[in-house]
Nucleic acid binder design. Sequence first.
DNA 1: TTTCCACCGGAAAATGAGGTCC
DNA 2: GGACCTCATTTTCCGGTGGAAA
Length: 406
Amino acid sequence: MSDDIIDKIFERAIKGPMIFKDKSVLFHDYIPKRLLFREEQISKLAQHLASLIRRQRTSNLFIYGKPGTGKTAVTRYVISRILEKIKGTEYFFYVAYVNCRLAGTEYRVIRSMAEAIGLDLPFTGLSTEEAMGRFIDFVRDKGLPILIVLDEIDALVMRYGDKLLYILTRLNYEDQKILSMIIGISNDLRFKEYLDPRVLSSLSEEEIIFKPYTSIELEQILWDRVSLAFYDGVVSEAAVKLAAAISGSENGDARKALDLIRVAGEIAESECSDRVLEEHVKKAYASIDRERVSEVIRTLPLHSKLILTALYLISLKSPESRIKSSNLYNKYVLITRQFGDEPLSSRRFYGLLTELSLLGVVDKKITNYGRRGGRFSTVKLGIPLNMLEKALSNDPLISDLLLNEI
DNA sequence: TTTCCACCGGAAAATGAGGTCC
DNA sequence: GGACCTCATTTTCCGGTGGAAA
């Protein structure tokens, strides 16, 4: 049976219509040869970087814009173009690009910066101050200018404050042997409230704002990439227009538009269609949402999955009613013991429940019954029951639990 | 206006696993 | 090998919350 399926897939791959010429150009990490509708930002950024080539002190830069407006793409594009030109010349300078959200902690941000310029730091064991000291010493000893790009800088500041930023923004002023420039990139302007006024004024000396793309701009960007990603005539005009319209209505997010057209192509391919049509984009729109939920649930820690299992089993009997969080905790305790593990404390349970609510998997509301009943939260599923069932059944341990309980 | 209920969630500490340094 | 470090996860403690009832 499984052999038949594999045979069919291979046969389709060999004999089916060829749709993609180069799928990689539709992924987020691809740096295109040209970036449409961002000439002004490219020019402003390049002018700033030119100061480092001339070995002149320059102001730091703050880049702000909604997700998918091209902040990271423009920054990486300009840096890669400049590095191409200065590589192996006397104008060379270091570039340390770090995504603060991915790095996670202050220490890992420092370690990533160090790694980018060829300094090896252990992944644990040193204090943050010691790691920072070694990084600064290394830059000073090498005597080359350094460009530090802190992408998603809000993630770092909201969690750890601005200590690291303070040290970095002072480097240029307090150490005559170091020539540095910092670019901070953020989706969220609220993080500025958490900054020391000195850090804020230093970081925001110059700002570049990225406005969301309009649907018309998105359509042109899509055509630009479609011509590289697909064979000629494969993608219909209606499909591109729809993908652009959907993304345009959702914050003008170019990444979303690219995802939609890529997944639409994959769906068309799996259906053995030789063209990507409007209906494939519609299917892609529904599929991306399903995949996101499934991926979120798949990567949850065990006890979050056990909480969801408890909620699933209660929802089976009463799908629409809201459940008191303490009742859900009791059910979670029973299921966890049945699973053969010790349940977490109720405090930890509330923490995990709040996380599930923020992810949109659970719908949590606070209800107040006053003196008679007190104040507590009630929950229900934030996604369809069958979607949760499918996602949980992918975990063999949890799926067994579902079968046993039923 | 005050009291009371039933949590809710912030803060700090504990834990344990990874490590460095001297 | 002992002191000290990061980091993620979890527990413990306890004050805060807000609306119905008194």
